[in-house]
Simulated assay, not measured.
Amino acid sequence: MTLTAERYDTELHRNVGVFERTDFPADSAHEQVTFFQDPATGLKAIIAIHDTTLGPALGGTRYYPYADEAAALKDVLRLSRGMTYKSAIAGVDLGGGKAVIIGDPATGKSEALLEAYARFVQTLGGRYITAGDVGTNSDDLDVMGRATDYVVGCNTAAGGSGDSAPMTALGVFHGMRAAAQAKWGSPSLAGRTVGVEGAGKVGYQLIKLLLADGASVVATDVNAAALERVARDYREVTIAPAVIDRAVDVYAPCAMGATLTGESVAAITAEVICGAANNQLADTAVEHDLADRGIIWVPDYVANGGGLIQVAGERLGTSTKDVRTQVEKIFATVVQILDVAKREGILAGAAADAVAETRLAAAR
């Protein structure tokens, strides 16, 4: 049965369900949404399978202290739809899916909980394949691998391809270079100042690439330990309480999504926005606001496809060299999208969607 997303309400007591939502496009039907819980370990999880036209749904498991189940559901539905488009535009034979575990990974995560979650993944029979995301890492995936066959991104010692953060950061870097070429006529970021919001797994790797290219970096994160690591390893990086409204050339959101709102866009000085965070736009109208101000935004699901390309390659036995080559092609993909947007007078988001939807339509 198809799950249509036609209405959403954050007030759970009003009993507004997933079949009656209005905060999703009419064509954003999900194939399957499954809720799991395991009282013994405290596990509460949701797995959303958006589309399996191109192959089994693959997407990371996000472990996050959502305010309530409604917030978790909204996030997993948006993220899973994004994975469908990410797979399509990355050229991999995978569908779109995502999972969330509700809770604080700093206090609630345990091997027993991860194994219980993995057993639930196993019950889906391969329709959903999990990987890492915010709040989960390769060590966690190793634990999940004890109870499910459908996990990628484990450590190399456990037979996986390891942490996908470096490849995700590499894709963002090349997407940023393509945007820089469109805006300033050169793909080099030397002499540019980049504000990196989120200095965790991907943000840390992105900072490394930016510094090597000659950029200046301003970094922020809500996690003090992440900032301490950056300050220790990269003394030339400026640590700031925020970067979105700072005087930078490029804003790189690499933490949670929805930081681009009507209000925040008004305060942005950056001329290019390209980062690893998913669902960066609070709503689609925000991209119009960015375009009105002449700001180039690289659609997030295009820029952050490097990790997906890596784990897709893991399933096929693709060499590390070939995976890297495919990730570097994100540069050409972004160039194509920005060229189409300029030529046809449409937004970059619409241009990217058209490329993804053409592949999906052909497969159907």
Rank of each mutant, 00 (worst) to 15 (best):
D140F: 06
D142M: 03
D142W: 11
D142N: 14
G145K: 13
R146A: 10
A147F: 12
Y150M: 03
V152K: 09
N155Q: 14
T156E: 15
D163F: 05
S164A: 13
P166K: 04
M167H: 12
M167N: 11
T168A: 02
G171S: 02
G175H: 08
A179F: 10
Q181R: 13
A182W: 05
A182T: 03
A182Y: 02
W184E: 08
S188A: 14
S188Q: 09
S188P: 00
A190E: 10
A190I: 00
T193S: 05
V194D: 11
V194Q: 08
G195M: 11
G198V: 09
G200V: 06
V202N: 06
V202D: 08
G203N: 06
Y204D: 13
Y204E: 13
I207K: 04
L211Q: 03
L211P: 00
D213L: 03
G214C: 03
V218D: 00
V218F: 06
T220A: 05
N223W: 02
A224W: 00
A225K: 14
L227D: 07
L227V: 04
R229C: 00
V230R: 05
A231L: 00
D233K: 11
R235V: 07
T238K: 14
I239F: 04
A240L: 08
V250Q: 05
Y251Q: 09
Y251M: 09
P253L: 06
P253Y: 02
A255Q: 10
A258Q: 14
T259S: 12
T261D: 08
E263D: 15
A266P: 01
A266S: 10
A267H: 06
